[in-house]
Design a protein around this nucleic acid. Structure first.
Length: 190
DNA sequence: TGCCCGATTAACT
DNA sequence: GTTAATCGGGCAA
């Protein structure tokens, strides 16, 4: 019994949306899996792309919630974010890892690896596995070819500091599915 | 205009 | 453990 996420799911604080995404299912053209790791970014946060105000790259973050913000990371990879909160707050959730469930063979071919744990465990890896590029920047998450299904059971959410940033490193704004072996890095036991 | 560095990953030693 | 790949944004000059 699964239910599609609607636009108003994203029209809340990024710190409410981010943990609620853990256990939800993300599919793009029918390929994807269960979200097991995300991070929250907000325009008052020095580590966020929106911190210094709107630019051509981050314009989608300043738009309405429920859309995809895709950016190039290190000149090599793509990273997928879900825009949150009422229009203008410029906050987003970075999708960092999935437990792959749909389209395994397609993902293996795109990634060039067989190990399930290497398909979608990391923001750049999951974009490659799902075939997401800057072409999806500004796409509605609540409409095809995206499909977001609410979690069907309660989950235990692990919390920790974000990964790979040099500013505001102490904020505990990384959320994960407790015990999942598909997270990009383990969460410290609490 | 030029330089530095990043919400990463894979391939090294 | 360290480092190359690779490029656009942001800021100094």
């Amino acid at each position: 019994m699964t239910k599609l996420l609607r636009r108003n799911f994203f029209a809340r604080s990024v710190h409410a949306v981010a943990p609620d995404l853990i256990g939800a299912t993300l599919l793009f053209k029918g390929v994807g899996g269960m979200i097991v790791e995300v991070e929250a970014y907000h325009h008052t946060d020095p580590a966020a792309h929106s911190f210094r105000g709107p630019t051509a790259r981050n314009a989608v973050m300043f738009g309405p919630p429920g859309f995809a913000y895709v950016y190039r990371s290190y000149g090599i990879h793509w990273c997928l974010n879900f825009v949150c909160e009422p229009k203008g707050s410029a906050s987003a959730v970075l999708i960092r890892a999935l437990a792959p469930t749909q389209g395994l063979s397609v993902m293996r071919r795109r990634r060039g690896v067989a190990d399930e744990r290497l398909l979608c465990s990391g923001p750049g890896r999951l974009c490659e596995a799902l075939g997401i590029t800057v072409a999806q920047n500004g796409s509605a998450l609540t409409e095809p070819p995206f499909e977001l299904l609410a979690r069907s059971a309660e989950v235990e959410v692990a919390i920790g500091p974000r990964i790979g940033i040099t500013k505001a490193v102490d904020h505990p704004w990384r959320y994960g599915l407790k015990g999942s072996r598909f997270v990009s890095k383990p969460f410290r036991a609490r």
